[in-house]
Computed example of a mutant assay.
Amino acid sequence: MNEYQEYSNDRKEEPSFRYAGFWMRFWAYLLDLVVVGSIVRMLIKPVFRMQDFSLSESSMFAPASIASALIFYFYFVLMTKYLNQTLGKMVFGLKVVDLKSNQMTWGTILFREWIGRFISSTIIIGYIIIAFLPKKQGLHDLFTDTSVIHVER
């Protein structure tokens, strides 16, 4: 039983979390970008070189760009689904929680990590609002009623 379930069994109120602010989430995200970049450099680039695919093409529809994007999104989706945190969030003691239920569904995670993240990155204010909202939610969190919290150690 997780901390949310224990709390919700005792009370019917929303649990109180210590929400992670903009800078903590920013540093965790930068670390995740290093991890994803390393995975791409270790997996995609050598395979593409062996197959004589172009790595210098800069189009977003180039095979290397598509493979890199898939690694990026699968990393965030799978880590969030199975661990509720990415490696960057683990290092900084953060995790993603659904504010309405005990467990995040595939739909919630796919929308948050794929569609919501795309929208937030296109409209930069989608990330900046984290600094100003009470539950420290980005646009992608608001769409899915999730937030990032500090894990009690």
Rank of each mutant, 00 (worst) to 15 (best):
S54M: 04
M50N: 13
V96M: 05
F111T: 15
L139H: 00
A64W: 15
V148A: 02
K135I: 05
A64R: 10
E113R: 00
P134C: 04
V91I: 15
D141G: 01
L99W: 04
D52Q: 14
I71P: 00
G107Y: 01
A67V: 06
L87I: 15
S56T: 12
L133Q: 03
T80K: 06
S59W: 04
N84P: 01
D145R: 11
L83W: 14
L55Q: 08
L70N: 01
F132I: 12
K81V: 10
Q137F: 07
L70P: 00
D98M: 10
Q85D: 06
P46D: 04
P46S: 07
D52H: 14
G138P: 05
G88Q: 03
M104T: 10
F92W: 09
L78T: 10
L70V: 15
Q137P: 03
A131C: 09
A69V: 05
V96R: 02
F143H: 01
I119G: 01
K100N: 15
N102R: 14
P134S: 04
W114C: 14
M79E: 05
I130W: 02
A62M: 08
V47H: 03
F111N: 10
Q103W: 00
I128D: 06
I66M: 07
R117Y: 15
L78G: 07
L139M: 10
G116R: 02
D52V: 08
F53N: 08
I44V: 15
P134L: 06
V40P: 01
M50P: 03
I115E: 07
M104C: 09
N102Q: 14
G126R: 00
I130L: 03
M104P: 08
S54L: 03
P46Y: 12
L99C: 11
L55E: 03
T80D: 05
K100A: 11
P46T: 11
M50H: 11
K81E: 04
T108I: 11
N102T: 09
I149N: 01
P63N: 07
P63S: 11
D98V: 04
T105Q: 05
I71T: 08
F111S: 12
F118K: 04
A131H: 07
S58R: 11
T86H: 03
F53H: 12
